[in-house]
């Protein structure tokens, strides 16, 4: 378990502001956020390698705030693996054993099991500088797990890997977590990592936590305009809602049963449907617009459509685009299912 209370870190030009987080025992938790949001700083604060300005960090029920990194029992794996370049694979993995009294026969046997489990047996005598990206990541993981840490911190461990290695290492993380029940805090900006590995996630923005929840909650029900935009809801529009009517600029859309103080509507681009103007296929509630830009991305195309002064971003399959003969400047009808409009 990791509990972070009111964590503050001040660096020149950036600060973490009173961050509160709780990662349950045995949970796989993701920290998401744009570059420079402070994700790695939180991780390094838990590891104890940065000086914190305030707050408290509890790891597995033990207050580690004032403890040096070597007494926290926390394993860390960095994006660049941070393998010791002057040591062989075997010596990298063995590096921490002496400090945790794991240089015993039992400790070494456990280490051998780990090496076999991670498929590193044939690499032990190799220099780490000759390994592939996936092999390096497995060595870094073996080195961190060899000391049997109470929690494992992963700093974007997949982002520097080729796609084929990425899937392999993702599967490895998933199965190791399932087998060991280890508490894992992972920093990533890849939604696939969060969806496939984590139970819960926190979204960070400029040094503070915007939202914490299950991965599904964060992606489907963002609480702020920033989170909505970050999780891919490309249309985050200022709105007002009165008596079941949603006003987006001059557009009025029926939202039966909705009332209250909402400031933004967040709509995923794939939930905005287009048909050529005059088509009978569109349901009631459609409204007219005009295509302003089309950006072909191969299998799909990104379109911006202007309707009553409001710019909507949408995507559609390139084949559908060609079939409907949609071009820049062409008049279209837009349809958005009220159920797909998330009000913030």
């Amino acid at each position: 378990m990791i509990r972070i209370d009111q964590l503050s870190v001040r660096l020149p030009g950036f600060s973490l502001k009173s961050v509160d987080l709780c990662v349950e025992q045995g949970e796989f938790f993701c920290l998401l956020g744009p570059t420079g949001a402070g994700k790695t700083l939180i991780l390094e604060s838990v590891a104890g390698v940065v000086t914190i300005a305030g707050g408290r960090i509890v790891v597995s029920g033990r207050d580690v705030t004032g403890l040096p990194p070597e007494r926290r029992g926390v394993g860390i794996v960095y994006q660049d693996c941070a393998l010791f370049p002057h040591l062989s694979v075997a010596k990298n993995i063995d590096f921490g054993l002496r400090y945790y009294r794991r240089s015993t026969p039992a400790g070494r046997a456990r280490c051998r099991d780990l090496i076999d489990r991670l498929g590193l047996a044939s690499l032990l005598d190799r220099s780490v500088t000759t390994l592939s990206g996936g092999e390096k990541q497995r060595v870094a993981l073996a080195r961190a797990l060899a000391t049997v840490p109470t929690v494992l911190l992963l700093d974007e461990p997949l982002s520097s890997l080729d796609p084929c290695f990425r899937e392999e290492i993702r599967d490895l993380f998933r199965s190791l977590h399932r087998e060991t029940g280890l508490t894992v805090l992972m920093v990533t900006h890849d939604f696939t990592d969060a969806h496939s590995l984590a139970q819960r996630a926190a979204i960070l923005n400029d040094g503070h936590v915007e939202q914490v929840g299950t991965v599904d909650e964060v992606f489907r029900r963002p609480l702020t305009a920033f989170v909505a935009d970050f999780v891919g809801m490309k249309n985050v529009l200022p709105v007002r809602v009165e008596n079941g009517i949603l006003f987006i600029g001059d557009l009025a859309l029926a939202m039966p049963g909705k009332n209250g103080h909402f400031r933004h509507a967040a709509i995923r681009p794939e939930h905005i449907h287009l048909q050529p103007a005059g088509s009978d296929a569109m349901p009631n509630g459609s409204f007219p617009g005009r295509i302003t830009t089309i950006s072909n991305q191969g299998f799909f195309a990104e379109l911006t459509v202007e309707a009553a002064g409001v710019i909507f971003k949408t995507v559609m399959l390139t084949s559908s685009l060609l079939a409907m003969d949609l071009r820049q400047g062409k008049a279209v009808n837009l349809h958005i299912d009220p159920a797909d409009i998330h009000l913030i």
Partner: peptide, 21 residues
């Protein structure tokens, strides 16, 4: 890279041991 030293510390090495190892 300072990260090498961070990892060393997280693996149990003190600041001195990290410097020498």
């Amino acid at each position: 890279s300072p990260r090498l030293e961070h990892v060393s510390r997280s693996l149990g090495a003190s600041a001195g041991a990290t410097f020498f190892r």
